[in-house]
Design a protein around this nucleic acid. Structure first.
Lengths: 139, 139
DNA sequence: CAATAGTTTAGAACAATTATAATGTAGAAA
DNA sequence: TTTCTACATTATAATTGTTCTAAACTATTG
């Protein structure tokens, strides 16, 4: 929930020029109380809902990727045909309902820390992500 | 490690007609000591290495999907542009090296059971998958 | 300002996957 | 067996998500 000049500062401080397009995308992504998940397509729709000037699809892709690289977004690995992103960059996990293609946060406190008792020589762990697939409970 | 007539039986018993193509794919996927991971592209290459008759790409997709539906294969959710499949259908998790696009099994015994202390009303858990991303250890 | 390096853009290109519609085939019935 | 039919396979077209390209634009620096 920052204002425009704060986004300008945020972008500049991470080495990204604060362009109109990036600021608009910041607004759409971060000017809200709750974090949320989105696909590129959904983001494009949200943008066009808030603004008359449409942002080129390529720019949306570019921006999402640079925001991800800067750590403003996380990508969630879901077995699917499209990429899912999360504005919640804190450590947490997900439920995924394949039927409804619906993604829900699992508060980190609700998952016991995942302990991995093995390692790969020369590699270090970068992230541990738990995906809990759910389905209708017909019992 | 079954022989041809055992694959015929296996397919038939799950309601799939044992066609030449499906049997060839069974051979490539299951006639080995070790389980392994593959993409459709890699599977196509393996097939052409073992056989002169090439199987249409569409058939490979169809077959992999029906094998997955029957539980002979698992799909591994990796944030990527292509689908990864696993001939190891037992419960286990994965390391993924994004740099090398390399996928490695984590023996189930090497992961403490993941405990989820929350649930979604009306839904039940279908699977819990842990993806451990790794990177070069430059320390 | 002027220079320039980074950005945006429309559209082409691409890669993975799915759809289509014609042809082929396994299994059952006659 | 031969015939029938539903299921499978096939080549190819179509679709979808994403990346590339190269020209136009713009934020920043000097």
């Amino acid at each position: 929930m920052l204002n425009n000049s704060q986004y300008i500062e945020k972008l500049r401080s991470s080495g990204l020029r604060p362009t109109k397009q990036r600021l608009k995308i910041c607004e759409v992504l971060f000017n809200t109380d709750k974090t949320f998940h989105f696909t590129i397509n959904e983001l494009v729709k949200r943008i066009s809902k808030v603004s008359n000037h449409k942002i080129s699809l390529a720019t949306v892709y570019n921006t999402v990727h640079s925001f991800k690289k800067k750590g403003y977004l996380k990508e969630i690995p879901i077995n699917s045909d499209q990429s899912y992103f999360d504005t919640n960059t804190s450590h947490h996990h997900h439920f995924y309902d394949e039927g409804q293609k619906n993604l829900i946060d699992i508060d980190d406190a609700d998952v016991e820390p995942v302990k991995i008792n093995t390692k790969i020589p020369g590699k270090k762990i970068k992230s541990v992500e738990v995906l809990v697939k759910v389905e209708d409970d017909k019992s």
